[in-house]
Design a protein around this nucleic acid. Sequence first.
DNA 1: TTTAGCACTCTTCATTCCTGAGTGCTAAGT
DNA 2: ACTTAGCACTCAGGAATGAAGAGTGCTAAA
Lengths: 354, 354
Amino acid sequence: MDLTERKKKILRAIVDNYIKTAEPVGSKILAAMPGMDCSSATIRNEMADLTQMGYLEQPHTSAGRVPSPAGYRLYVDELMQDYRLSVDETQSLGQVMEMKIQEVDRVISQVSKLVSQMTNLPAVAMTASAGAPTVKRYELLSAGAGSFILVVMTSGEMVKNKLIKLPLTVSDQDLKLLSAVLNASLTDLPWEGFTPELLERVTRSAGPAAALVPVIVDYVTHVLKEQQHSEVYVTGQMKLLGQPEYRDVEKAQEVLSTLDSETLANLPATLPASARTKILVGPENIAKELRDTSVVMTRFDIGEGMQGLIGVVGPTRMDYAQITARLSYFAENLGRMFGKPELPPSQHEETGDD
Amino acid sequence: MDLTERKKKILRAIVDNYIKTAEPVGSKILAAMPGMDCSSATIRNEMADLTQMGYLEQPHTSAGRVPSPAGYRLYVDELMQDYRLSVDETQSLGQVMEMKIQEVDRVISQVSKLVSQMTNLPAVAMTASAGAPTVKRYELLSAGAGSFILVVMTSGEMVKNKLIKLPLTVSDQDLKLLSAVLNASLTDLPWEGFTPELLERVTRSAGPAAALVPVIVDYVTHVLKEQQHSEVYVTGQMKLLGQPEYRDVEKAQEVLSTLDSETLANLPATLPASARTKILVGPENIAKELRDTSVVMTRFDIGEGMQGLIGVVGPTRMDYAQITARLSYFAENLGRMFGKPELPPSQHEETGDD
DNA sequence: TTTAGCACTCTTCATTCCTGAGTGCTAAGT
DNA sequence: ACTTAGCACTCAGGAATGAAGAGTGCTAAA
């Protein structure tokens, strides 16, 4: 299976060129490239070999060659040159990331937006919790007549709240009691553990504010489920239209509609624990609608046993090197932002240090 | 300017038909329609008149007629028949709306998703507050070493929270003090009112927890600004590709890209206080990229002086009657959901009532 | 005022032809 | 044994052509 150096060089050149131009590349063009010291005829011979080996394809007899999926595979595995982010790029990427993480749960949607912006392709972002999420803490506040604020903190270090309106008058004392009961009985428990009996017991011991219990439980299970299933955010779908291979609206629609569905929720499963970044080339994809489409994805860590995943969807012919580099950079910084406790942000005075 | 009854009938028939088929409609087809008791020749004459009056256009000499913008205008203003939602429809619309309003601020994005789903077209949703938003209430909770939860309730009846991590040890007592100070000094005040002097004073009287002040202020101004500018959610952009007029990717892209921008933020401005629903036909649109595109939008009330806006973007040839009806239905129900205090939702047992 | 008829216009689709790019093969050169 | 030049061959894509069909406008009759 080992290719000669020259074959590798040629294959790489073909993929590189095809990535740039989206046109089949012919022997003449290759021969003219700097670093190719043989004639077009030689290259033709080599290309014939590569085609036979399954690394190249030709759309029709008189067109140039195009990398086959196997060719891409080889390319991303061995041939691809590490793309080095230029100073300009790191700078503008850094700029893009200048957002403040205001609410952890909304960040994910922002992240997908940013990744898309950064790669000029549709992007997905999602979180996945390791282990079933639970509530770590309940807090109840009164907010005027008949209004209550429920604050819950989950095992994923997320804080969620809900404004509950219920025609009910209870004292602060009563709310305290209810909070205490909730914290005693319904913490560190996945939502499946909320058995009717348990709830019954909680309601009984909840005192005057017992009417709030069902609403609270309802909300909490919702939050926990949401955290478990981990919402998937897809952004920048239209970016796909910019790519020549999706000029055909039918095709674009096909891909875009699968992007919407829960196909993506299965993506993380395909990401082995070992690797941080994975590239799925064309037919390797789970959904057959994504046959002519590749996916690059990277994992990043959020503290507290939660992980995030960001990915980019694009034509098989995409700039794997560049995109991988950008994605990694992004993931790395995100990990930092989440992982580290937040530093006091740009306080009273800017001292310009970092 | 008054048209004869027959002319109106013909114009309406043309628009109706064109809405359905997206093809120029010819005299023969019209003559064949039930309720047309004249021959194609007569209709040709009438159509010639209507064309001259500017209500119709013909793409080329030997094609049928197509409504002009003026024609559409007349149609939506006078000719359009009220579309009555069928029982089936109300049912399925009702189903779509079965979501629980869990977090008010995330609802808007959901709403836009639903509207899009419902109309099969791109949809926008946004909120706009009347008057500058302010904070009504602050609450601080400690959440383990170096972690604090900030809960703020805004004038728009929204509750937001943030997990603050700061290497700082303060007693619950100190937090109470800080909350009290914040509630005393920084409530009912738009963010522009957070002057350096005021903040200085707050920090001084904040006691041991003073280090939290900058973080809190940072977050709060962010929240208030966000609420002021009212985020705009656009969903279902790809739905546009399903429409024949956007088979041309160029065009679709053009429209979609303007949909992304803040063009939409200006939409509400064009909605007069008088009307609940407004239809913008083609050239009347603000952005010239939306020239061949129409917008239908409806206002709905959220309590507390806040309003919401939902809208649909589609080709000039869209089923105004149907879409208007659906939008209104939606807006009405939304208004109800927000306006009324929430009833205890489907409690202990599901009694199947609604 | 309405209708039938007819000539005219113009798009659309299929067919044909041509060109150019790119290949594979062969034979000569190193 | 490998490389190169040359040449015939193939095939997609674009331009040109022609026939078919849809729809119109106008005229003359009802």
